[in-house]
Design a protein around this nucleic acid. Structure first.
Length: 449
RNA sequence: GUGGUUGUAGCUCAGUUGGUUAGAGUGUCAGAUUGUGGCUUUGAAGGUCGGGGGUUCGAAUCCCCUCAAUCACCCCA
């Protein structure tokens, strides 16, 4: 019995054409990362569950893919938990590992484990898949790639500026006009304190993050329910072009200690950015909160201007991420690119450059068995010369062989039959314009090199 | 995790109030053309109508369950 094949929900195959496009995104980002001196890192797909749980909140824990232990895992599980069907407790006994949920936490783990080999500040980039057991929908997959650039071991705001520039440069190179939204967690905290949400800061951020989605009135409603001065808070929430004027306006309102610290950070970041020639708009958005609660300073989010899609990048400063793994006082700042969403945006914008899946420059088309052997030999000569070469595997009809070349976008075909073999004068056909020439192998190689 | 919409050939889609053998375009393969691709033309293959169950004399069509895609929540890249 044959079964209908399928892939798990939220996962996808990538065809050669799709891979060419994905490679284009990855290599564009990689080139920018390298330009700023980031070094590449990879970590295992599997992490110990203890590394992952509790780092992403209750929601995050639910979305973790857990991997069953090897062997007869139920044998070692406590009977009462199996009997009680208590999945939540039982899982701790039957699954020790899980698939990574993001790249930041594994990076923090890496830094702590290798702290004595690393010279700080350490700049690393990482391009790997992550997994979330989320319900798939547009722009949301269960397996997707993140492309992260982080720096640990420095609290200099120069790095915030560099990361802003990386966002700007990368999306410029990809041809996606974006808004780079920036905020500072301390500014947010200051607003919260000022308006009486100091005690309920977490909930406060969750609500205001929805501002552009549900509107001012709804947000005011929910904030009032939370118990605080909703009107005052809403008045302070705005998104403006990131410049001196906007900052000064904000500074006048936030004259408490946290606020002044946050404003000072934004000012320093701005003074770096003022020296740059940026392609995209930078927005100071005090409604930007971001879910992950470990951010402590600058936070980023990037949105494509021409396509409706969730954020295609995000990140921020976290003063003490490695603290949970026992290394205190190491500050980090990082950003992430959502490669799969960037792919969808480029596709929707029709903004991919012409990227054939074909790399073959030359194909030999043998007319008989002896020519096939002869072609195989000549092909290795071409390959040694650095020409990407194929040999058609059968001495089939020319129509078929040229059809293969045509369908695969191979630009040059060499027809080899008895005449060519004996004279060494190869019939070289250029498929784009249909021109045909007689060349010997050396002349052919020179022409294509 | 909650709710809505959709599911017919590899792909894009027709398919009448439930009625004979489920169609088209495109792609694939073969021929027209024995050593010359794209264009043309002829033909062929390709379908458990997402899967399972039910109603009916009869189901692609109606009902239930399930799987998947998609959209809105939640959350996020």
């Amino acid at each position: 019995m044959s079964q209908k094949p399928s892939v798990p929900q939220g996962t996808r195959d990538f065809s050669p054409v799709e891979m060419a496009r994905r490679r284009y995104i990855f290599s564009t980002l990689e080139a920018v990362f390298k330009q700023y001196g980031f070094k590449q890192l990879e970590t295992p797909s599997l992490e110990n569950l203890s590394t992952l749980t509790g780092k992403y909140g209750d929601e995050g824990d639910k979305l973790l893919f857990k991997v069953l232990n090897s062997g007869d895992y139920l044998q070692k599980a406590p009977d009462e938990l199996v009997q009680a069907k208590d999945s939540k407790e039982l899982i701790k006994h039957i699954a020790d590992r899980g698939l990574r949920y993001d790249l930041t936490v594994p990076f923090a783990r890496y830094v702590v484990m290798h702290q004595h080999e690393i010279s700080f500040p350490f700049k690393r980039y990482q391009i790997q898949p992550v997994w979330r057991a989320d319900r798939p929908q547009k722009g949301r997959y269960r397996e997707f790639y993140q492309c992260d650039a982080d720096i640990v071991g420095s609290d200099s705001l120069l790095y915030e500026a560099e990361l802003s520039c990386i966002y700007d440069e990368a999306f410029h190179r990809l041809g996606i006009p974006v808004s780079i939204r920036i905020n500072n967690r301390k500014v947010l905290e200051s607003i919260a304190i000022r308006c009486g949400f100091g005690e309920t800061f977490r909930d406060f951020t969750v609500i205001i993050d929805k501002l552009d989605k549900i509107g001012e009135e709804k947000v005011a409603e929910e904030l009032t329910a939370l118990g605080g001065d909703a009107q005052a808070a809403v008045a302070l929430l705005a998104s403006k072009t990131f410049n001196r004027e906007a900052l000064d306006g904000l500074a006048k309102e936030l004259n408490n200690e946290v606020g002044e610290k946050g404003i000072a950070e934004l000012e320093e970041l701005l003074s770096y950015l003022e020296t740059q020639n940026l392609h995209n708009e930078i927005i100071l958005d005090t409604t930007l909160a971001r879910g992950l609660n470990y951010y402590t300073g600058t936070i980023y989010e990037v949105v494509a201007k021409s396509v409706k899609m969730g954020s295609i990048g995000g990140g921020g400063r976290y003063d003490d991420l490695t603290g949970i793994f026992g290394l205190k006082g190491v500050s980090g700042v990082g950003i992430s690119f959502g490669a799969d969403r960037i792919y969808d945006v480029l596709l929707e914008m029709n903004a991919f450059p012409e990227l054939g899946a074909n790399f073959t420059q030359l194909i030999f088309c043998p007319m008989d068995e002896a020519s096939r052997l002869y072609s195989f030999k000549l092909a290795s000569q071409c390959r040694e010369a650095g020409i990407q070469t194929e040999v058609y595997p059968e001495p089939a009809k020319l129509k078929k062989q040229l059809g293969y070349a045509d369908n695969n976008g191979i630009p040059v075909a060499v027809i080899v039959g008895e005449n060519e073999r004996e004279s060494g004068a190869l019939s070289v056909k250029f498929l784009q314009d249909g021109q045909q020439e007689s060349l010997d192998i050396l002349a052919l190689i020179n022409r294509l090199k």
